[in-house]
Amino acid sequence: MLSYFLRRLILVLPVAFGVSVICFLLVQIAPGDPLTAIMPVDATAEEQAAMRAAYGLDKPLPIQYAIWIGNLAQGDMGKSIATGRPVAQEVFGAVQNSLLLAVSAAVIAFPIGIFLGFLAGYFRDTLLDRAVTALSITGVSVPNYWLGIVLVIIFSVNLGWLPSMGAGPGGSQSWAWDWLHMRHLILPAVTLAVVPIGIVARTVRALAGDILTMDFVQALYAKGMSRGDVLRHVARNAAATALSVMGLQLGYLLGGSILIETVFNWPGSGFLLSNAIFQRDLPLLQGTILILALFFVAMNLIVDVAQAAIDPRIKRT
């Protein structure tokens, strides 16, 4: 198990390196001089050159990258241009809120998706199967930022049951496990859960359908095993694949919640990202994307290892 983990870890390193290069290049493709944001308009040419040297912007790109990655290794991701605070501090606070939202959505989506998908797979080609299939294709087709607005219209504007914005009463940024805060979580979490429900249901349906037609299921029934016990075997067979799909989905939820966070003014990484974009706060943009992408890479690694832990067939390949 440990050697498998180490092998996977070694494979991840070049990807992580590539991710850092892309994040570094993001700032380079941005139009305009990065200095214009921080320099006074009437700065002389010498002052500009001095500033350029101070930020290392006069050096060739690979050197700039080396400096950037060196600072990064020490936890220094630069300072936000807009707030002047360290990027790392801003990002980690926001990522916590995003993680809360993503995990809540996953907690809603995965059981529902598994249940629906299993029903559809077990009762293949029945009305129930078709209903679930229709539901899941609707789930993956819906633009979730629009669904968020529709839910706000229904539950906040018309019914007045739930708040439409923020993560707590009075624009509170800090989270607490009480009803006042939880109310704010419901709408964004449900909105975010819709797409993964569709995807998980689809996957589980296909898996259950395939496994139920396998010979071993017939054999288990033939030897007189009860339906419940047979289904346990089926579930164990499906677990590894289902787990990997869900792990990926959790990663997507974190990276993909940007639009939903904008709809609900949720103070997470997506909200931070859209602020960074509009204030042309490139260090903040770079840092947020880097952290989210690295999180996604780590998530994939964990999924791979967990999959191997569950399914001994994977480790051997």
Partner: peptide
């Protein structure tokens, strides 16, 4: 593979944002 390390929404917003 490196591009697969980004969820598609994140990558689109990152490039468009920059």
């Amino acid at each position: 593979d490196v591009f697969f390390a980004f969820p598609s929404v994140l990558l689109a917003i990152a490039i468009s944002g920059a």
